[in-house]
Measured scan of single mutants.
Amino acid sequence: KELVLVLYDYQEKSPREVTVKKGDILTLLNSTNKDWWKVEVDDRQGFIPAAYLKKL
């Protein structure tokens, strides 16, 4: 499984997104879309802008 580091706080703006904090380490589920990556946060799955994440 691939992990990503959150570079900036992000507040979800729709039900398909998730809220994260800078410094969080998340499981990356899908990065095929270059703009929005799907991650897992506390048993929730959702999207975050790829620019907010860095692969570890």
Score class of each variant (00 low, 15 high):
residue 12 E to A: 15
residue 18 V to K: 02
residue 52 Y to I: 14
residue 2 E to L: 10
residue 55 K to F: 07
residue 14 S to T: 12
residue 23 G to Q: 02
residue 44 R to L: 06
residue 9 D to M: 03
residue 47 F to V: 07
residue 43 D to Y: 12
residue 26 L to G: 12
residue 18 V to S: 02
residue 52 Y to P: 01
residue 9 D to R: 03
residue 27 T to P: 15
residue 38 K to I: 15
residue 54 K to A: 11
residue 26 L to S: 01
residue 50 A to K: 08
residue 30 N to Y: 07
residue 55 K to V: 12
residue 1 K to G: 10
residue 28 L to Q: 00
residue 25 I to Q: 04
residue 39 V to G: 00
residue 42 D to S: 13
residue 32 T to N: 13
residue 48 I to C: 13
residue 50 A to R: 14
residue 34 K to Q: 12
residue 35 D to F: 15
residue 5 L to K: 06
residue 46 G to Q: 05
residue 29 L to I: 14
residue 45 Q to Y: 09
residue 20 V to N: 00
residue 37 W to K: 01
residue 13 K to P: 05
residue 8 Y to H: 14
residue 28 L to Y: 02
residue 10 Y to L: 01
residue 55 K to N: 06
residue 54 K to L: 15
residue 39 V to D: 00
residue 20 V to Y: 05
residue 4 V to H: 01
residue 53 L to P: 00
residue 54 K to R: 15
residue 2 E to K: 09
residue 15 P to C: 09
residue 21 K to C: 11
residue 40 E to H: 08
residue 11 Q to W: 14
residue 2 E to D: 11
residue 7 L to W: 02
residue 19 T to Q: 04
residue 51 A to P: 09
residue 36 W to I: 04
residue 10 Y to N: 01
residue 3 L to T: 08
residue 51 A to H: 15
residue 43 D to G: 15
residue 4 V to E: 00
residue 35 D to G: 10
residue 19 T to P: 02
residue 15 P to M: 08
residue 53 L to T: 06
residue 45 Q to P: 06
residue 51 A to S: 15
residue 20 V to W: 05
residue 54 K to N: 06
residue 42 D to G: 15
residue 44 R to Y: 06
residue 11 Q to M: 11
residue 31 S to Y: 09
residue 18 V to R: 02
residue 15 P to S: 13
residue 52 Y to M: 08
residue 9 D to T: 06
residue 15 P to E: 12
residue 13 K to L: 10
residue 20 V to A: 12
residue 49 P to H: 04
residue 40 E to Q: 15
residue 34 K to P: 15
residue 26 L to H: 10
residue 36 W to G: 02
residue 38 K to T: 08
residue 30 N to V: 08
residue 7 L to P: 00
residue 31 S to G: 11
residue 10 Y to P: 01
residue 11 Q to C: 12
residue 13 K to S: 11
residue 35 D to M: 15
residue 41 V to L: 10
residue 18 V to D: 00
residue 24 D to I: 06
residue 6 V to D: 00
residue 6 V to N: 00
residue 12 E to N: 07
residue 17 E to W: 04
residue 48 I to G: 01
residue 12 E to R: 14
residue 12 E to K: 14
